[in-house]
Design a protein around this nucleic acid. Structure first.
Ligand SMILES: [Mn+2]
Ligand SMILES: [Mn+2]
Ligand SMILES: [Zn+2]
Ligand SMILES: [Zn+2]
Lengths: 138, 138
DNA sequence: AAGCTAACAAACAACTATTATCATTTAAAA
DNA sequence: TTTTAAATGATAATAGTTGTTTGTTAGCTT
């Protein structure tokens, strides 16, 4: 199922309303692998709905995160980025231009929390972040 | 060599000055595995030097990071944390209380950037972040 | 189709972490 | 001790994000 359709359904199931602004956000997120920041999403929505406010963007992104339909990435120290792909995967960020790409390698067979933590932590997930410089940034 | 001694030496080598405030920060960082935020460091320095400013804390932490003597952790989405241990290692963060612990497992033999990225990226390092709930937070 | 109401959007204010500016002070070299 | 470059601290500014209020609307009910 495509993102727009799925998110519409999920929000409906929670008696939340589908507004034009939200639909636009869903469309922006559909098949989006660019890991946009709130501002990048805001700008694109603003092109179509010039009166949209930042609050609306943040509120909708928060709702989607709470519903588990969106991942909030803590990888760029300057701002949060959002990822509609909620399947386990990893990232590489260029420390110069801050571009974030997906790394779909499955590290789970090898990356396990050491035994000593097992009894003290309930692990929900892990993520691997690679830091480097992309070719464009040399 | 202990942290205070080492940092003093490194700063001297770069013609930087050793001030009482900086020495206090060095002491706070010595053997510190709590991954403090700037504010936590600020509060502790303030106990001894009540007129210290936040600027001094941030500036000194920036200097240490630039010199490679301190690691800035991007793992808590609310604020940066600092780690005097600059050797490669990983972390587990409790998503409830935000406590950060070290994970010293060496994942480097298994966690490698996939071949497809090799020609386009100069990787400087990677980090594994485990997310979970600690026992105290249940 | 019209009315109802919880949820929403927008305007705006507030807040938090961090960085910038700059006059004053000080570490440390001469 | 004098000199000077660098650090400090007061203050302001900035950026990202969250909270509040009030009028509007999606989508159900009649
Ligand atoms: Mn991704
Ligand atoms: Mn650590
Ligand atoms: Zn780049
Ligand atoms: Zn906890």
């Amino acid at each position: 199922m495509e993102t727009v359709e799925k998110l519409t359904k999920v929000l409906r199931n929670h008696s939340m309303k589908i507004t034009p602004q939200r639909l636009m956000i869903f469309q922006i997120l559909e098949n989006n692998t660019s890991h946009p920041s709130a501002e990048e999403i805001f700008k694109r929505v603003k092109d179509i709905y010039p009166t949209v406010s930042f609050t609306t963007i943040y509120k909708t992104l928060e709702v989607l995160c709470d519903l588990g339909e969106l991942r909030e990435l803590t990888i760029d120290d300057a701002r949060k980025h959002y990822d509609p792909n909620t399947n386990t995967h990893h990232h590489i960020i260029c420390t110069s231009c801050k571009k974030i790409l997906d790394v779909f390698e499955d590290f789970s067979p090898h990356v396990k929390l050491p035994e000593s933590f097992r009894e003290n932590y309930m692990i929900s997930n892990f993520q691997v972040s690679f830091y480097g410089i992309c070719k464009e940034c040399n």
